[in-house]
């Protein structure tokens, strides 16, 4: 079970995913609590034009910078839109997502081989991760975890009691922007290595799954990281076994995501059970928003 990971590229892939697991456990908790799933999905798409422009301007080295600029720009735009505007924030998120992504597509579509560019953007190149990329991810991981550590208390306050946080003197707009930027940083750190499919899953599924087991945020973060590690190991192993032993090409990104989603589905009944037990206590004053159809 360890043997495939002695192959250098497999070992590097696992190391990259382990770093991402470390970040995504805690970050996904905030994505879950603040209901930022759509924003996360949007960010994975909106860094695309940055990736393209960065590549055109500076080659491989320019990608991270381009993605960083595009990611932070989107974080700012989405924060502005979510704070009251002409559109509801989900519609504006959708529009920013599609528009930015399309700009990227327009840029690549003028080049001849754009289908393979798009494909690697979707799947990443986890099996060709270089030590340099791992180092970049590690640096971003330190930055992200540092930001989270400093701001965790304020972010939690703002999540559960926006009015109270504002009254207590927190600048909620800046906190919202900070969280969006943190998510953008995760996307930038991960997208080239693991692709959008995996990034979006890593930002949403760990905490959603952990939530079935606990209500404590710190525990959710740890369980999320643990789950991601297990899924990363299992997914890489499955994809290795499938292609080496059975000759089936199973992309590792898909395998990791599907394992995470499987864990979510398996734990779903447990979550429903917990919810039911708590129901009587919270039912009387829990009011549904008119838009709870799809939160």
């Amino acid at each position: 079970m360890i043997e495939p990971f002695t192959v250098p590229f497999m070992g590097r892939a696992l190391a990259e995913l382990a770093l991402l697991a470390l970040i995504c456990g805690p970050v996904s908790v905030f994505v879950f609590a603040r209901r930022l799933s759509f924003v996360s999905d949007a960010l994975t798409h909106t860094v695309f034009p940055g990736v393209v422009i960065g590549f055109l301007a500076g080659g491989i080295e320019g990608i991270v910078v381009g993605a960083l600029v595009a990611g932070i720009l989107t974080a700012v735009v989405l924060t502005l839109f979510s704070r009251g505007g002409a559109l509801s924030d989900d519609a504006s998120t959708a529009v920013v997502l599609t528009a930015m992504f399309s700009i990227g597509v327009v840029l690549v579509s003028r080049r001849s081989s754009y289908t393979s560019d798009l494909t690697s953007f979707l799947f990443g190149r986890i099996l060709t991760v270089t030590p340099r990329q791992i180092a970049e991810t590690a640096v971003l991981a330190v930055v992200i975890l540092g930001l989270l550590l400093i701001s965790a208390r304020a972010l939690i306050f703002r999540t559960f009691d926006p009015a109270g946080a504002a009254a207590a003197g927190f600048r909620t707009a800046w906190l919202d922007l900070l969280l969006n930027i943190i998510v953008a940083l995760v996307v930038v750190a991960a997208v080239r290595a693991v692709g959008t499919i995996l990034v979006v899953a890593l930002l949403i599924v760990p905490a959603a799954t952990a939530r079935m087991l606990t209500t404590r945020l710190s525990l959710m973060a740890m369980i999320g990281t643990g789950l991601t590690l297990v899924a990363a190991y299992g997914g890489l192993l499955a994809s290795w076994t499938a292609s080496v032993d059975y000759g089936i090409s199973l992309t590792s990104a898909s395998a990791v995501v599907l394992l995470l989603v499987l864990a979510y589905l398996l734990l779903l009944p447990l979550g429903a059970l917990r919810a039911r037990r708590n129901h009587g206590r919270i039912a009387s004053n829990a009011r549904r928003s008119p838009h709870e159809l799809v939160g």
């Binding site: 799933s37 759509f38 959603a208 599907l258 979550g271 919810a275 549904r288």
Partner: peptide, 23 residues
Amino acid sequence: HRSQNTAAATGVMLSGGFALGAG
């Protein structure tokens, strides 16, 4: 289900479906 975070559940469906299809 009031207690379900539907945004998260939708996100899980999105990534799961996408990964399955892409796979």
